[in-house]
Design a protein around this nucleic acid. Sequence first.
DNA 1: CTGAAAGCGCTTACAG
DNA 2: CTGAAAGCGCTTACAG
Lengths: 334, 334
Amino acid sequence: MATMQDVAERAGVTKQTVSNVLSGRVRVRPATAARVRAAIDELEYTPNLVARSLATGTTMTVGLFVPTVASSFYSEVIEEVEDVLDRNGYHLMLCTTRLDGERARRRLAGLSSRSVDALLIAGDRDLIDHLPLLADARFPVVLCAWETEAPDRFPVVTIDYERAGYLAGRHLRELGHQRVAVLASPAHTARVAGFRRAFAADGLPLPGHAVHLAAEPTPEGGFAAASAALAADPGLTALFATHDVLALGAMEAAKVAGRSIPHDLSVIGHDDNAEIRLARPALTTVSIPKREMARQAVELLLRAITKSGTPANSVQLLRPELIVRASTGPVAGR
Amino acid sequence: MATMQDVAERAGVTKQTVSNVLSGRVRVRPATAARVRAAIDELEYTPNLVARSLATGTTMTVGLFVPTVASSFYSEVIEEVEDVLDRNGYHLMLCTTRLDGERARRRLAGLSSRSVDALLIAGDRDLIDHLPLLADARFPVVLCAWETEAPDRFPVVTIDYERAGYLAGRHLRELGHQRVAVLASPAHTARVAGFRRAFAADGLPLPGHAVHLAAEPTPEGGFAAASAALAADPGLTALFATHDVLALGAMEAAKVAGRSIPHDLSVIGHDDNAEIRLARPALTTVSIPKREMARQAVELLLRAITKSGTPANSVQLLRPELIVRASTGPVAGR
DNA sequence: CTGAAAGCGCTTACAG
DNA sequence: CTGAAAGCGCTTACAG
């Protein structure tokens, strides 16, 4: 392994000069620089990043926490984060918490030792209880895809989930639906609240039992929740699933129950994820700008690193958008 | 930021003693150790991993290259890799190559500077041309999920893809199918070869035009390829998709063409990925032990790190398994 | 069982 | 524009 010292000797200079050539921050006479470059090539020298990190106090890597990698939402977040990072010369350290708080805690503690220049935490499911661990992190922390209320001390870039739920509710209201149910993952409280608001605004507050929790964020979970909802109230004319994959299961359940979509039952999802491309009829859903969110979160993080201060403690909300397709229709159709 | 020196002063010892307490590799008198631990707590000292890395020459992080994170195959590989790593105290540095050879090259060069203790490369699509870059890597490299022939110098843990294709072919043969087509991603050469072998063995070599390449590994890609196959030869009785998501699209295409599955057309996939849970009829497929593969690959890597030698240059093949469900049936049914 | 020294390979002021 | 020095925060033999 060639070291900077080796290169220096070969080029007949000191290692400081080699360092200067490499960093470009100090002007070096062209002839000298050329000699240094030649030596670097001959020796196949590549700088030791660890040594550089120790000297500069910077690692050029960012940590990313996500609940899972097996969902198109987080896949896209990860890819977007990596792209922005890559463009700026940063590496990505990935931790998936897997709904395991203890695991999350352990990984968080493991990363907090200056091996990372900043931390991006996506999704609030597992880490929320352990955020105090980061109370005096010496690096910037940004939260994204945060649906529950976030701790005051960290900036967050997220979706206006409440509005997303509201858009879904308003759409169903405009179609005349009155008896509706919600299929929700336990964490999706803001979406449910927004949906409720749309109905309450019209003087039709949703009864508490209209919300059916799905045990798992899978089609199977949606199938079970939808079956339960339909059994509990056969008069239902519409279903809001707080997650597209839940909606997929709900469509299956409707079929099994002999209901055609959207004629007998409207179904609306949330996310506009890749998983629904094959759904028939095409699923009406609320689209959320996940890549945009990820991009802005990383950029905030990167700005915080270079300014080496804590980032402005702001909450940034990206707006969702209703995408009307074929799975929702007027209630009159029934 | 408290340093080891600070802890030492507070505890009235030298930093070497602190180091010894931390590492546990040298016995320290209990009373001294207790004083040191107290000082650590009071100062909230956490060791600087970068400094440790420079001193030990080890970073406790492993790099993982995957083509993409947006597929359940690679999601599962990533999660499994991370689990094994985590259990052994290692961190994960993730690079997705995204079908971009130049990007892959750049990331590879970026990692090769001792910031990683070992490298696991999953999938051969993007990096194969750049592997020579690793020719004199100073850390172990292991390949996995490799379908094309791997460069001699690296150990590989992969699936017996040829056999997977063979199992699919043999199944169709046993059901009496003679006129069949293959829907394949361009890289899936071994699966196609194995499938061919099953037919050739029965004296029914597949004509070259029986293979239809899918432009993209998506349901849409499968739909297009299947439509083309059905148009080219309406007498087809079975389709082998080298990837489950292709099979999903093929099932759609069959529906559109007015063919019922499996009565008019048998469809068999490959991978047994989560994406097919909702397919109706349930998809017959060839299951591959992806998590097992990932686990063994990482363990090989870890062994290579600790032995600090290059791992045994072996090729390890895991066996696929045929999973018969409802999308395939006897040709006589037609 | 504890301490003094050297070293890991860089970078960053600071002189010349 | 180039060189000598100190330092980043650890670990690892090596003495005592």
